[in-house]
């Protein structure tokens, strides 16, 4: 009797053990399944994100607004571009948590490790949508507080910093016109990317968008004034030896259109060919010849 009891106990034990293992297997399979489904849902939420910005915007407004407001509580602080970037990311994080978090709960049994993992992947996937999201949240909050917010790049204290305000970001939306603050911001950004410290030694120089306008103004003056004015005009490339640069880039703006002139100075050895002037115009709208005449003086 005792032995049979022991036997049954051990049998029960082994059964129990087996069941546990089964369960565990099942769980693992479950987890795997849910992971798969989670991966499967990724593409959908991403679509939803895009749509949600325009179509579903109203339904989700409440929760979204909340998360954005919490992440955009930085309006009063000095907004440097760095903080803007990181906030943008955190905003996207908030956003994905808000929308996708609910999705997860409905489809997948909550298991923390899985969820945590999923969140990470979601954020990575969301990187593309970041701009859209920031745009969207600006629309929502601008009326109250963002109107006067300004971003200084590279920093507020830099004497050559570029200032853009939140309205300027609107111009990055599809089918809208680019504004000069954005252009100048990007020029500055390119310059700093290429040469963080030694501006003088880099082999190209980009003028800002107002240079060409000024050049035209200068050229329209009388001959007698030109000499003295040219001295003043040279301030525009103060501290930069233009003729030692390999390339000089001049953005051109005319008639609601942007184009670019690149002046290439060949190496001093083969001086036979003078500087080459290239004019890049996406719409072929500007009269290249006029531009060339202006630039070659």
């Amino acid at each position: 009797m005792a032995s049979s009891e022991i036997h049954s106990q051990s049998r029960f034990g082994s059964l129990f053990k087996k069941k546990m293992e089964d369960n565990a297997d099942h769980k693992v399979a479950n987890a795997f399944d849910s992971e798969l489904s989670a991966l499967g849902t990724h593409s959908r939420p991403k679509l939803k994100l895009n749509e949600g910005l325009s179509l579903n915007g109203r339904q989700k407004n409440g929760s979204r607004k909340r998360s954005f407001q919490s992440s955009f509580g930085w309006k009063d602080r000095g907004i440097s571009s760095d903080s803007f970037y990181s906030k943008g990311q955190s905003a996207s994080k908030h956003f994905s948590n808000g929308v996708l978090g609910r999705k997860e709960e409905s489809r997948v049994p909550p298991s923390y490790g899985l969820r945590h993992r999923k969140r990470e992947t979601v954020v990575v996937l969301d990187d593309d949508d970041e701009v859209l999201e920031t745009l969207d949240c600006i629309d929502e909050t601008r009326d109250e507080c963002m109107k006067d917010a300004k971003i200084y790049y590279p920093s507020r204290d830099d004497p050559e910093c570029v200032e853009i305000c939140f309205q300027d970001i609107d111009c990055l939306a599809p089918e809208s016109f680019l504004t000069s603050p954005i252009m100048n911001f990007y020029i500055r950004y390119l310059e700093l990317q290429a040469s963080p410290s030694q501006k003088a030694t880099c082999d190209y120089h980009i003028f800002n968008t107002f240079f060409y306008k000024k050049l035209q103004q200068e050229l329209s003056r009388k001959e007698s004034e030109k000499e003295s004015l040219f001295v003043k005009f040279r301030r525009w490339w103060k501290g930069v030896n233009l003729f030692e640069k390999a390339y000089v880039l001049i953005p051109i703006h005319e008639d609601l259109h942007w184009s670019l002139v690149i002046i290439c100075f060949p190496e001093k050895k083969d001086n036979r060919s003078g500087p080459i002037v290239l004019h890049l115009d996406s719409l072929k709208l500007h009269y290249s010849r006029v531009v060339l005449e202006d630039i070659t003086r």
């Binding site: 680019l178 504004t179 306008k213 000024k214 703006h253 005319e254 259109h257 942007w258």
Partner: peptide, 8 residues
């Protein structure tokens, strides 16, 4: 004082 430029 230059006018801010917009364009495509």
């Amino acid at each position: 004082a230059l006018l801010n430029q917009t364009g495509s």
